[in-house]
């Protein structure tokens, strides 16, 4: 269960593969660095020369608009050269091809790969087989992890809610299939929230989920009671086929976030969603566009957080990024 793959011998963050195993200090350093990058996007000239001459390859084996775009903007604001590659899943259904693809690109002297792949563990496998000077950021692997999303979510929470220690947080929806949820859970637990809940029907809750350090709820009304932060998850429409839920209507009735259900939370609770949203399925438009929603700021902050991660792992920081767990 060693997490050392992410760290070099000096304890500096070398890759970002998962939030699991990151210390509170490491996470806070990333958030503080992101804070300092926030203003870059508001300037006339939105660029700093931190990663000039570095080559970043966005390697997406699974389609994405938002994540890929924010990574691209983040790298460009740091003055790196960015290549976007969308590799169709069919041409890389075999692992050797995946490794071959990566090795070919590595031979072109890439400094950082931002990888998204449909299989859990893909980023770990790539990191294990590349030379140490090449960095990996996991931009989502299967159901396992989406660490920059988890980080931008806690960044957003800190901006709106301040200290984590007094917060009650609920994550609602398809936890079973969600890499976002797993990363959020690791981040929020490392930061020491008072209480972390997950809310979903049993068909969408993983076995032994409480071992991740959360309290499971199957009734939304109970789970939302008094929480300060509601983090909604996207529900893939194909889940209806696997007999996991009966219909969109029933799901919305039971687990859709409506103004009435939101009223059960603490009165100044914030509502988050990693996007893209299914309005009328997991969230009511009145909530998504309402005053408690911080969904669009999440996107803005995503750029600063990704800049911070890139800067830190590519040697932008001279200090070791916190200790190991």
């Amino acid at each position: 269960m060693k997490q050392s793959l992410q760290f070099d011998d000096a304890g500096r963050l070398r890759h970002l593969l998962t939030i699991e195993g990151l210390s509170r200090q490491t996470i806070l350093e990333i958030l503080d660095t992101a804070e300092s990058f926030l203003s870059v996007g508001e300037r006339e000239i939105k660029k700093i020369p931190l990663l000039r001459g570095k080559t970043v390859v966005n390697l997406f084996f699974e389609s994405s608009t938002r994540t890929r775009t924010t990574f691209e903007i983040a790298a460009k604001r740091l003055s790196a050269d960015v290549i976007n590659l969308n590799v169709s899943a069919s041409s890389t259904s075999k692992g050797e091809t995946l490794l071959d693809t990566i090795r070919n690109l590595e031979a072109m002297h890439t400094d950082l790969f931002v990888v998204r792949h449909a299989e859990s563990g893909a980023a770990h496998m790539i990191a294990r087989h590349l030379p140490a000077h090449v960095h990996i950021i996991n931009a989502g692997d299967g159901r396992h992890a989406h660490p920059t999303q988890g980080l931008l979510d806690v960044f957003t929470i800190r901006r709106y809610k301040g200290a984590f220690e007094k917060l009650k947080v609920a994550i609602v929806g398809d936890v079973l299939h969600s890499r976002v949820a797993r990363s959020q859970i690791h981040a929020l637990n490392a930061l020491g929230v008072t209480e972390l809940r997950v809310i979903a029907p049993k068909t969408l809750l993983p076995t032994a989920v409480e071992k991740l350090g959360v309290r499971p709820y199957t009734r939304m009304e109970e789970g939302l009671d008094g929480v300060d932060v509601v983090m909604m998850l996207r529900l893939q429409r194909e889940r209806m086929q696997g007999a996991l839920i009966p219909s969109e209507q029933e799901y919305f009735n039971l687990y859709g976030l409506t103004p009435a259900k939101l009223a059960l939370t603490a009165k100044d609770a914030i509502v988050m969603h990693p996007g893209p949203m299914n309005r009328g399925l997991e969230i009511d438009s009145a909530v998504a566009d309402g005053p408690q929603s911080v969904i669009l700021p999440q996107v803005t902050y995503g750029i600063a957080v990704r800049m911070a991660v890139m800067a830190l792992i590519m040697g932008g920081s001279a200090e070791p990024a916190g200790g190991r767990r």
Partner: peptide, 15 residues
């Protein structure tokens, strides 16, 4: 195995 490790790693489990 559908259990703790599968849940942690996001790997589909066999109950």
């Amino acid at each position: 195995h559908e259990g703790e490790s599968g849940t942690r790693l996001g790997l589909p489990g066999i109950p």
